[in-house]
């Protein structure tokens, strides 16, 4: 089979490009440690979240030194809790599920982004920095009111976080 020398050159360059892309993604996983949403969580019954220990009361709770877990329920058309209040300079793991249809969970302008599928729990861990307020949006069409489905993720100072959790009943 006859292939022109230039085309062979281009073929080699193309393979190099592909290796660059695969290499970058692998570097992202190994270097900065970017991890994918995965099958780490067991399936749940989306129609019985009321009886689920984690999701009957969506909340943020401290689970270790500087480690927090946020249990979030997405539904037509909102998120609970809202706002999701988390402390600065901490490691936060979001556990997000849906009690009805497929939704998205996107902290606008950041890398915190996942599908939310009924019956499954999406687990993503992020590290917060300074206090700031992010918009939280559903980025998967979920019904006629999809565009009103929004929430907030508020990163607050440690002092403010503790103030808030000790003030009320944690709600």
């Amino acid at each position: 089979m006859h292939i022109h020398a230039y085309e062979k050159l281009w073929l080699a360059a193309s393979v190099l490009l592909i290796l660059l892309l695969l290499g970058s993604v692998t570097y992202g996983a190994v270097g900065p440690g970017v991890a994918m949403v995965s099958d780490s969580e067991q399936p749940v019954d989306a129609t019985a979240l009321d009886e689920d220990e984690r999701f009957s009361e969506p909340r943020v709770e401290q689970v270790g030194e500087n480690e927090y877990a946020a249990y979030v329920v997405a539904f037509q058309f909102g998120f609970q809790p809202d706002p999701i209040v988390i402390p600065e300079d901490s490691t936060v793991t979001f556990y997000v599920t849906s009690r009805d249809v497929i939704h998205g969970f996107e902290v606008a302008g950041t890398n915190a982004n996942t599908m939310v599928v009924p019956g499954e729990v999406s687990e993503i861990t992020v590290e917060t920095d300074e206090p700031t307020e992010y918009g939280l949006i559903c980025n998967e069409y979920c019904g006629a009111g999809h565009h009103v489905m929004e929430g907030k993720v508020n990163v607050v100072s440690q002092a403010e976080y503790e103030n808030q959790t000790s003030g009320g009943d944690g709600e």
Binding site: A13, L17, L20, L21, S24, G28, P32, G33, V34, A35, M36, V37, T93, V107, G109, T110, N111, A112, E123, I124, T125, V126, E127, T128, D129, T132, Y134
Partner: peptide
Amino acid sequence: YFTILVLSWVYIYYIEFLGRDLVVVG
């Protein structure tokens, strides 16, 4: 084209993507 692709990729992956808030690490 190849040069543009490589430069754009390096920008969008290493600067834009890895430089954003709330990188998912677990």
